[in-house]
């Protein structure tokens, strides 16, 4: 009797759990559809329409209200003009390349600075670790804009850095950093460093320290142990950190706008110029769409490598 009851209980629980699991799965998908897929489709739609004077500043295409025939008519009105313009005008290509280059350089710098920090945090005595994490994200407690303005004060020709260097006699003329690519790089590295440190810390903290000891015991020098054990085992953290820095850095607008100059081409600024100054919504939408496609490549590559390591693990 009790056995029957028990079995039924398990069955009920299983069904409820199953339903619950499905509901839980729906939430992220719903979120993605509502806040990513639909807005993105709207952006794509705008990118294939034609600019005009008015409100909104583009010819409407493909309105749901048009019905099937209207839809067919509007498909014929699809315009690849904006994409053609991006392809034809060198400035866009240069901005994309320059953005990717600056973002890649910034990612490399955050990795080089963040890795030793994350490693030191992960190997610090346990009671210190939470404090160190708080310190790593402490800059977030002040406004992002204020921190970038602070960098202007530091990097300007008559700023704190040059002042300090001149007064110590290291240099006689101020170094021109502000409004260069270097300043943009410094701003991005500074702002995104915590996004590199946290996933690295997470990966390194989970590593069994006995692994490095075993490597040393078997004759590996500390560097060899790092190269063969610590580094490959932290690869997931490295990839996650690099994506978290690289992807937003490519589209970064505020930092190049405040710390750079017109000479520092970044696609985020091109997009903004197109959107606000030129009032070319289809052009801006096309720039954004191309950027997203460009960024999808590393994400898909990461997903695949992720799947591969997982597949091999099983």
């Amino acid at each position: 009797m009790s056995l029957v009851k028990k079995t039924r209980g398990v069955g009920d629980g299983g069904l409820a759990a199953n339903l619950g699991r499905r509901l839980v799965l729906i939430v992220p998908y719903a979120w993605l559809i509502l806040f990513f897929a639909i807005p993105f489709l709207i952006v794509v739609k705008i990118s294939i329409s034609v600019q005009r004077d008015g409100r909104p500043p583009y010819e409407p295409v493909f309105e749901l209200a048009d019905g099937f025939i209207g839809a067919w008519e509007s498909v014929q009105k699809f315009s690849m003009e904006s994409y053609a313009a991006i392809y034809a005008d060198r400035i866009y290509g240069d901005a994309y390349i320059s953005s990717v280059w600056i973002a890649a350089l910034a990612t490399l710098c955050t990795l080089l600075i963040g890795y030793p920090l994350a490693l030191a945090m992960a190997r610090a005595p346990r009671r210190w670790r939470s404090l160190l994490i708080v310190l790593a994200v402490a800059p977030f407690w002040t406004s992002f804009l204020i921190r970038i303005y602070a960098w202007i004060v530091i990097l300007k020709d008559e700023g704190l850095l040059n002042h300090a260097l001149i007064s110590t006699g290291l240099i006689s003329e101020p170094i021109h950093i502000y409004a260069t690519q270097g300043a943009v790089l410094i701003g991005i590295v500074y702002s995104y460093l915590p996004f590199m440190i946290l996933p690295l810390y997470n990966a390194l903290e989970k590593q069994d320290t006995a692994l490095v000891e075993a490597a040393l015991d078997l004759g590996a020098t500390p560097f060899a142990a790092f190269r063969q054990i610590t580094w490959p085992l932290s690869m997931r953290g490295v990839i996650a950190g690099c994506l978290l820095v690289f992807i937003p850095a490519v589209g970064e607008y505020v930092i190049p706008d405040l710390l750079g100059s017109d000479e520092v081409l970044m696609i985020g600024r091109s997009l903004w110029d197109e959107f606000s100054t030129a009032r070319n919504w289809p052009g801006a939408a096309a720039v954004a769409t191309v950027l997203l496609v460009l960024l999808l490549v590393p994400i898909v590559a990461y997903q695949r490598s992720h799947l591969q390591t997982h597949g091999a693990a099983r």
């Binding site: 692994l211 000891e213 075993a214």
Partner: peptide, 9 residues
């Protein structure tokens, strides 16, 4: 090692 410390990768 007590935990064996085999290199998982």
């Amino acid at each position: 090692f007590q935990s064996y410390a085999l290199f998982p990768h």
